[in-house]
Simulated scan of single mutants.
Amino acid sequence: MEVGDGHRIRCQEAGNPAGKPVVVLHGGPGSGIAPMARRHFDPAAYRIILFDQRGSGESTPGAEDLRANTLWHLVSDMEMLRERLGIESWQLFGGSWGATLALAYAETHPSRVSEIILRGVFTVRQSELDWIYRGGAANVFPREWEEFLAPIPQSRRDDPLAAYAELLEDPSEEVRHRAAIAWSTWEGATVSVQPQESFVRQYAEPGFALTFARLAVHYFSNGAWLEEGQLIRDAGKLAGIPGVIVQGRYDTVCPPTTAYELHQAWPGSELRLLEGAGHAVTDPGVLSALRAATDAFRE
């Protein structure tokens, strides 16, 4: 679908064309549509809508061109897609960065949202960025943190996010690739409560890592074009929208304090805090909690 600014986004549907519409918002930013995302929904009951966000997956241009690629462009793309499909209102489903986008869209267009299901809540506050990219999570994953810092000169390690923004624009392709893989591998190493080599390999794959790192650093260096604390501050706009927040107790990427604060600010929301789970959708209890939520909202 053409969305303007020279961007085309890849869109996909699955399930029942006459079913309850739900839009799935992938994480990252930059991870793209994953087959697992369709499996959270009863295909007989749901019309499942997915899209690769700007710069991600098969959308064009890729992450090498970051012009006209902000959170508010993505919100606008969602509205264009909803109108294109003739949908009055839809359920929002997103985890991690997908939760960020879901909240931004719902607070902008609350009348177009029937329900919201979030996992591993992230709202791009400075405290959240500092936790994962300025040494908080390093207390849990010290060896992996050392590897994350390895591409950065000693003199620039006080602000890794700013340092990575420079490395990913370096004239040397070798420098850019090394930085992208180190950035992406850090997330792969911390995403599950039980570290899994398969996640590390997936995130370290060069093609994935370059897109993932460039988009993430682009968005986070700009605070996702949000005012500090905006998404939780404005959560009162979600009053009347049923919502379920699924959060791992031991989520190292997006610690549960953010989900808890959102729950407190969002009237009528339900927080399901899962003991023994981290950030990954495959961690203990996460899939069953998400599917229980989508089943509850089927009708």
Results as ranks from 00 to 15, higher is better:
residue 8 R to Q: 10
residue 12 Q to T: 09
residue 19 G to N: 03
residue 19 G to E: 01
residue 19 G to D: 03
residue 25 L to N: 06
residue 26 H to L: 04
residue 27 G to E: 01
residue 34 A to N: 11
residue 36 M to N: 03
residue 36 M to E: 12
residue 38 R to M: 09
residue 50 L to E: 06
residue 54 R to Y: 01
residue 54 R to F: 02
residue 55 G to T: 11
residue 56 S to E: 07
residue 57 G to F: 00
residue 62 G to Y: 00
residue 64 E to M: 05
residue 65 D to G: 02
residue 68 A to L: 02
residue 74 L to I: 07
residue 75 V to C: 00
residue 76 S to Q: 10
residue 93 F to S: 10
residue 94 G to H: 00
residue 102 A to S: 09
residue 102 A to V: 07
residue 107 E to T: 15
residue 109 H to E: 11
residue 109 H to W: 07
residue 110 P to R: 07
residue 115 E to C: 10
residue 117 I to G: 03
residue 125 R to G: 15
residue 128 E to I: 10
residue 128 E to D: 07
residue 133 Y to R: 08
residue 138 A to I: 02
residue 141 F to Q: 08
residue 143 R to N: 09
residue 144 E to I: 06
residue 151 P to L: 04
residue 154 Q to K: 15
residue 155 S to V: 15
residue 156 R to P: 09
residue 160 P to L: 03
residue 171 P to L: 01
residue 174 E to M: 04
residue 180 A to P: 13
residue 185 T to D: 10
residue 186 W to C: 05
residue 186 W to H: 06
residue 187 E to Y: 14
residue 190 T to D: 05
residue 191 V to L: 09
residue 193 V to C: 04
residue 197 E to S: 15
residue 200 V to W: 03
residue 201 R to Y: 09
residue 202 Q to E: 14
residue 204 A to D: 05
residue 205 E to M: 06
residue 206 P to Y: 05
residue 208 F to D: 08
residue 209 A to F: 07
residue 214 R to W: 05
residue 216 A to M: 13
residue 218 H to F: 04
residue 219 Y to S: 06
residue 219 Y to F: 14
residue 219 Y to E: 11
residue 219 Y to G: 04
residue 225 W to Y: 06
residue 227 E to C: 02
residue 229 G to I: 07
residue 229 G to R: 12
residue 230 Q to F: 08
residue 231 L to W: 11
residue 231 L to S: 11
residue 233 R to N: 12
residue 246 V to N: 02
residue 250 Y to K: 15
residue 251 D to V: 13
residue 251 D to S: 08
residue 254 C to G: 06
residue 261 E to Q: 14
residue 265 A to I: 10
residue 268 G to W: 11
residue 269 S to Q: 11
residue 272 R to A: 09
residue 273 L to R: 10
residue 274 L to E: 06
residue 277 A to S: 14
residue 280 A to M: 13
residue 281 V to P: 05
residue 286 V to H: 07
residue 290 L to C: 09
residue 291 R to Q: 14
residue 293 A to M: 10
residue 298 R to A: 15
